[in-house]
Computed example of a mutant assay.
Amino acid sequence: MAKNVLIIGANRGIGLALANEFRDQGWVVHGSIRPQTRGDPSAEELGCVATKVLEIDYLDEKTIEQAANQYGNEPLHCLVNCAGVSGGPLQWQSNDGEIFTRYFQTMVVGPVLATKHFERNLLLGENSKIVNISSICGSISENDAGGKIAYKVAKAGLNQATRTIAMDFKKRGAFITTMSIDPGVVATRLNGWKSKVDVKDSVRGIYSVMDSTEFQDTGLFWSWNGLRIPY
């Protein structure tokens, strides 16, 4: 029986590449777009890969809840929180409350709410997995340069959310393996098409880490190449 994956933020960049990778690995792919991009050509491209295309905006919890209701009572074997925003102002003094709030809402609150509303489906999947697409920029111990403070704080927050939810599942005996994964610097619209890692190598690596991670390793932070990253 084929497994179900839901990739939130699946119509562009890493999300779309992951959708193709999961499909090639034999999964039934479900993907999300923001309601504002329903008419975008990228939504049509996702529709060629995904069985269901849901509308989710991390800034609006109602869209997450509605998407979960639309998904129904099917088991979910993997949830990938992939949607995000770019690095933002380089100098920390250029940030304001609005920027910080948008980054935190998009990259921390949104994935937490998605996990909350799809938890029942993940439990139906048995030994399901949650993959939060993070960044090495969210590692406090690896931070040896300034800049991009809102992005770095948000990714660090996502990593803490990953670990906290993982420990909660573990304490409850809910076998959902949760992880953060850094995809590497892949050329996407969000980062101005800068690249150090080919997107195909990145998504194959992300899939491999997801597939090989056992429940005993829940809550850890990984690189796409399989190396563990310190928080």
Score class of each variant (00 low, 15 high):
3 K>G: 01
4 N>Y: 14
5 V>C: 08
6 L>Y: 06
9 G>L: 07
10 A>R: 01
10 A>H: 00
13 G>K: 01
15 G>N: 07
17 A>W: 03
23 R>D: 05
25 Q>W: 10
27 W>K: 00
28 V>P: 02
29 V>A: 05
30 H>Y: 13
38 R>Q: 15
39 G>I: 09
40 D>P: 07
42 S>A: 15
50 A>I: 02
50 A>P: 05
51 T>I: 05
59 L>Q: 13
60 D>W: 03
63 T>D: 12
67 A>V: 06
69 N>F: 13
69 N>W: 12
70 Q>K: 14
72 G>N: 13
73 N>M: 12
74 E>F: 13
77 H>K: 06
78 C>N: 06
81 N>Q: 10
82 C>D: 15
84 G>V: 02
87 G>C: 01
88 G>N: 05
89 P>T: 03
95 N>V: 10
97 G>R: 12
97 G>Q: 15
99 I>N: 05
100 F>C: 08
101 T>C: 08
104 F>I: 14
104 F>A: 10
106 T>A: 05
108 V>R: 04
110 G>S: 07
111 P>V: 04
112 V>Y: 13
114 A>Q: 10
120 R>C: 11
124 L>N: 10
128 S>M: 09
129 K>L: 01
131 V>C: 10
132 N>Q: 11
134 S>I: 03
136 I>F: 05
147 G>A: 05
153 V>A: 15
154 A>N: 05
161 A>H: 09
164 T>M: 14
167 M>R: 14
174 A>R: 12
177 T>G: 02
178 T>C: 14
180 S>I: 02
193 W>N: 14
193 W>M: 14
196 K>Q: 13
204 R>P: 03
207 Y>P: 01
209 V>W: 08
213 T>S: 07
213 T>C: 09
217 D>M: 08
218 T>G: 00
221 F>H: 04
224 W>T: 03
225 N>C: 13
227 L>I: 15
